[in-house]
């Protein structure tokens, strides 16, 4: 309770700082005040395009995240099992990590339609994060546990879930925690560059074109909330899986 009060107090403090700064600047074109942003948000929500934009961007970004997660896990398992794959994937993962999102986005625009751009970009962001974490989890699994499993003739299912999955899940959870926020940031950035029709990125781009700073802040707030909701939801699902595995 005390912790929540402190968090709420901190948020209120920074909103007040923001309000004071906006009043000091005096031009909503340069810095929209929290009151103006809240007002604009209330106007935006009932609009027809609001929900469709939210669903469009969330759907694409989550599709990219899930695809990237699957690829990252498969790559990590292969690397954990065979050194050949570890060597093979290592430069690829390093390259994907190092290349700026903007470069990928512009290149991807040549290959695919702008509507699917955020799927590919978020996939590329999720793969190295999930790969690195899950691979680390696999490497951290004590090889002596395999000997234990052999001695006790543990069944393949229990061996997979109890010995391996239970060790890897905390690393997977970290990957989810890291990747979701990154996917939202990069996915929306890709949408701003590609401006697919009906996306949140397009709305952000339009707010820049028409100098609607309050819109920019309002949509940014929506992105933060969507990022938090999806992150919490995915972490909750991961925690449920961890608890089930814990109790085998």
């Amino acid at each position: 309770m005390k912790k929540r009060l402190i968090t709420a107090g901190t948020v209120v403090f920074w909103i007040l700082v923001w309000q004071a700064a906006a009043m000091l600047v005096g031009k909503s074109l340069l810095l929209a005040s929290p009151v103006e942003v809240a007002h604009r948000l209330i106007e935006l929500i009932p609009e027809n395009t609001f929900l469709s934009s939210v669903l469009f961007s969330t759907g694409k970004i989550m599709l990219g995240f899930f695809s990237g997660t699957v690829i990252g896990v498969v790559f990590a398992v292969l690397s954990g099992k065979f050194v050949f794959f570890e060597k093979l994937f290592s430069p690829l993962i390093t390259a994907v990590k190092a290349v700026p999102v903007a470069s990928f986005t512009i290149l991807a625009l040549i290959w695919i339609s702008s509507a699917d751009l955020s799927v590919l970009i978020t996939l590329l962001i999720a793969v190295p994060v999930v790969y690195s974490n899950v691979f680390e989890g696999i490497r951290a699994t004590d090889p002596k546990l395999k000997v234990m499993a052999d001695i006790f003739h543990i069944s393949p299912f229990k061996r997979f879930v109890g010995v391996y999955l239970s060790q890897i899940m905390p690393y997977f959870r970290s990957a989810v925690h890291l990747a979701v926020g990154l996917c939202w940031k990069s996915g929306v950035a890709a949408e701003v560059i590609g401006t697919p029709k009906g996306s949140i990125g397009e709305k952000l781009y339009n707010s820049k074109i028409y100098l609607e700073t309050a819109d920019l802040f309002a949509w940014t707030f929506v992105i933060i909330i969507l990022s938090l909701i999806t992150e919490r939801l995915l972490l909750l699902l991961t925690d449920i899986a961890v608890k089930r595995i814990e109790k085998l």
């Binding site: 004590d142 002596k144 546990l145 000997v147 234990m148 499993a149 001695i151 006790f152 543990i154 229990k158 109890g162 010995v163 239970s166 060790q167 899940m169 905390p170 961890v242 595995i245 814990e246 109790k247 085998l248």
Partner: peptide, 23 residues
């Protein structure tokens, strides 16, 4: 054969009961 190894070799993220259920 069953064994208690020099190290415990337990699955740290499983519950006590789950470690027993494994075998």
């Amino acid at each position: 054969t069953g064994a208690v190894f020099q190290e415990d070799r337990l699955c740290e993220n499983l519950s006590v009961q789950s470690n027993l259920r494994l075998v």
